[in-house]
Nucleic acid binder design. Structure first.
Lengths: 228, 228
DNA sequence: CAGCCTGTGTAAAGGTTCTGCAAAGCGGCC
DNA sequence: GGCCGCTTTGCAGAACCTTTACACAGGCTG
């Protein structure tokens, strides 16, 4: 089964070189020469992993990454000029999964891509768009709605995201920093109580059971209790 | 909140340097100076990620990785001499998740660890979450809970860590300084009675059996006795 | 064995950090 | 403007880690 990689790189020569190498290594390769095209292709969902140059003619690779992360957790490997430490750290913070300095060794690129894909393959639970049920709740990602006993809950956009993330990890603890990143799309800063508020509102809408469905794990985060 | 990292590195100076840096960055650090100890700790203890030097005095880091992979998918970052390309490729092939050349920039190490942890956290930890049983106790790392005869114990975050470490070493003595480092993430200072208190509280919650499950080894530390 | 020192058990108090939530602020959008 | 939803503010209260204090246990010494 071939892995599909999206290569976003403006230097035609390098792009073709890497593209050819990746093809030979058994990847299906899609290419984009600028950020906008890259973003569109990546969001089109027909690839497994993205190799993203930071220096792009239109929008920066970091910006592409940021927008990508607002919607998906597609694995991304950043490609950038050697030694540019700031980019590197910022890249990781925005949510890159790996970073390779240019000029890069194609063999290493492939090795890293495969390591990442292997990791994903192990852990991934598929079916992003399928409806999922958790006790009396049903998530329908297509409509961005959650139903409780088949009646749609009146959730705001953010509440939907938060609850959906909690449900996706039902039974285990989701750290506040992760919840923030995944649901709100930004980093948790000190003294930011936004999340707590959304949780509070969600609990209210869920019916304030006792014990609460959304459990607090002090110092860590929250956890949705799975009913049997 | 704290991520727990296992640092396997034979160079005392480097290990301590990195250990201190990681501590400051909010990691709970566990250390091993050789491959065998590292392997034992990685398999037994509840930790989130491993930083593994390739050059080790007894068994090679690659061998450790190979054996680790036979049992678990615990994320591993390899550490090795710059430019040793063979090691690098082999490392990825054996199943490393990332690779950092020495001498490494601590900030980059932290950034990479966090990128990996983020990835793992989203994709749902699997093997790392495998429940372990010790007599009537069952540790479920995913929920951060410990069950006694299938009923969840009401443990605080610190109590969980302490008990979990003791269980991982069930039957043998854990020195107080180690217990402090591994569970509380800081060094044991003179006149610090914190640990004793947590032990006392744990005993109470475990049911104050006689003889106590958590045995005191005067002048050394504590040891969890496994009931048959 | 008394005396001493050190290490341990634990109750209670202390103080810090974290959380829940009401209410007010703010910004976009009909 | 008025509404809606996200965010900030402020405070009260809870959870919990740490310190303090004192009692006691073990072991060593003379």
């Amino acid at each position: 089964m071939q892995n599909r990689v999206l290569l976003v790189e403006d230097d035609d020569e390098l792009r073709e070189l890497l593209g050819r190498y990746l093809s030979n290594q058994g990847f299906t390769v899609r290419e984009a020469a600028n950020g906008r095209d890259g973003l569109a292709l990546a969001l089109g969902q027909d690839c497994d992993i993205v190799v993203l140059d930071i220096m792009l003619p239109d929008i920066s690779g970091l910006e592409v990454l940021r927008e990508l992360r607002a919607e998906t957790h597609l694995p991304v490997v950043l490609l950038t000029a050697r030694g540019d430490e700031t980019d590197r750290i910022v890249g990781f913070e925005v949510g890159a999964d790996d970073y390779i300095p240019k000029p890069c060794n194609p063999r290493e690129l492939v090795a890293r891509l495969q390591a990442l894909l292997r990791r994903i393959a192990w852990d991934q639970k598929t079916e992003v768009n399928a409806a999922r049920t958790y006790g009396d709740l049903r998530v329908e990602p297509g409509h961005r709605r959650i139903y409780q006993n088949d009646v749609a809950m009146e959730l705001t956009a953010t509440e939907y995201e938060v609850l959906q993330v909690l449900l996706a990890h039902a039974g285990s603890v989701v750290r506040k920093t992760d919840l923030m990143q995944w649901a709100l799309g930004r980093r948790l800063e000190a003294y930011d109580r936004t999340l707590d508020m959304h949780i509070s509102n969600l609990r209210k809408k869920l019916g304030n059971d006792d014990p609460p469905r959304i459990e607090t794990v002090r110092g860590l985060g929250y956890s949705y209790r799975v009913p049997e």
